[in-house]
């Protein structure tokens, strides 16, 4: 390959990257420009009025927070546990490869399918009804593959030397994992959690079938209650609302809050991750 083609390829790669950044930048700009005017204290602290045409979105913010917390609380321990099993304990044979392939495939399953699965299993079969519990479990199933893959990769990245040294000092396998593998792979696991948070907060289809209510006059009291959620609220305001055309600012405002919420949660996770990265560097 000569110098000119090299430069051409570099240039086209650069243009493609810029194009992607530009598109995302424009979406962000559009949401902020149109949504900023809706933001005020009442918007984030009040209940909706006139089917969401005025008032605030407080219960939807709370609902989404509950769902994200519930989802991570279920999926993170399960995902890390699964990843530990796959990378440390399971036979690294063909069966393991198949499981890994299945997990990656699961990550690509459309979210509406997870919604139907959750409706069948958690809402109806387990009898949780349309509830935070059913919704969180459904979302947890959806983000599990992401968390498992990210965690497993970070576990495998821990150098063999640390493992050998622990074992040679008389550590049992679990002691080795607990003291000399998990701490170093924590940052990768948190990366998985960040991706999970983003998806759990933003998905509409799974919660539509398992937890979300369009309007509730009060906040949920237990995990068996329904909640409002930001993505579903946005979906209704934008497509189902009789005054959809005239309440664009409410739609954009909701989208902006959803973005800020995900950003805030991810930022928190990134800070924790930075802490672990600094503490264990090799």
């Amino acid at each position: 390959m000569n110098n000119t083609t090299d430069k051409l390829i570099l240039l086209s790669m650069r243009l493609i990257t810029y194009a992607i950044v530009l598109v995302i930048g424009y979406i962000l700009f559009d949401i902020i420009r149109n949504g900023a005017s809706a933001l005020n204290w009442q918007f984030v602290s009040a209940f909706p009025r006139r089917s969401g045409a005025s008032g605030g979105i407080f219960p939807a913010i709370v609902g989404t927070l509950y769902l994200v917390v519930g989802t991570i609380a279920v999926s993170l321990p399960l995902g890390i546990g699964g990843a530990i099993y796959l990378s440390e304990y399971a036979d690294q044979g063909r069966f393991n490869t198949m499981i890994r392939l299945a997990i990656i495939t699961l990550a690509g399953v459309p979210s509406i399918v997870f919604g139907l699965f959750g409706l069948g299993l958690f809402v109806l079969f387990c009898g949780f009804g349309s509830s935070i519990l059913a919704g969180s479990l459904t979302l947890a199933c959806m983000v599990l593959p992401t968390i498992i893959v990210a965690s497993e990769e970070s576990l495998r990245a821990v150098p063999k030397g640390f493992r050998d040294a622990s074992l040679a000092l008389g550590a049992t396998k679990w002691e080795m994992i607990r003291t000399n593998i998990l701490p170093y792979s924590m940052s990768g696991m948190i990366t998985g959690a960040i991706l999970g948070i983003g998806r759990a907060a933003g998905e509409t289809a799974p919660i539509l079938l398992t937890v979300a209510a369009f309007y509730l006059p009060r906040l949920p009291k237990s995990v068996f209650d329904q909640v409002m959620a930001l993505p579903y609220h946005l979906y209704i305001l934008a497509t189902q609302h009789p005054e959809a055309e005239r309440i664009r600012h409410m739609q954009y405002g909701t989208a902006l809050i959803l973005l800020l919420l995900v950003l805030g949660l991810s930022l928190g996770a990134i800070l924790i991750r930075t802490h672990f990265r600094k503490k264990f560097r090799w």
Binding site: P159, G161, F162, D164, A165, A168, Y184, F280, R281, W282
Partner: peptide
């Protein structure tokens, strides 16, 4: 071991 492997 051959390669020194202190824990971080």
């Amino acid at each position: 071991f051959q390669k020194s492997n202190p824990f971080p």
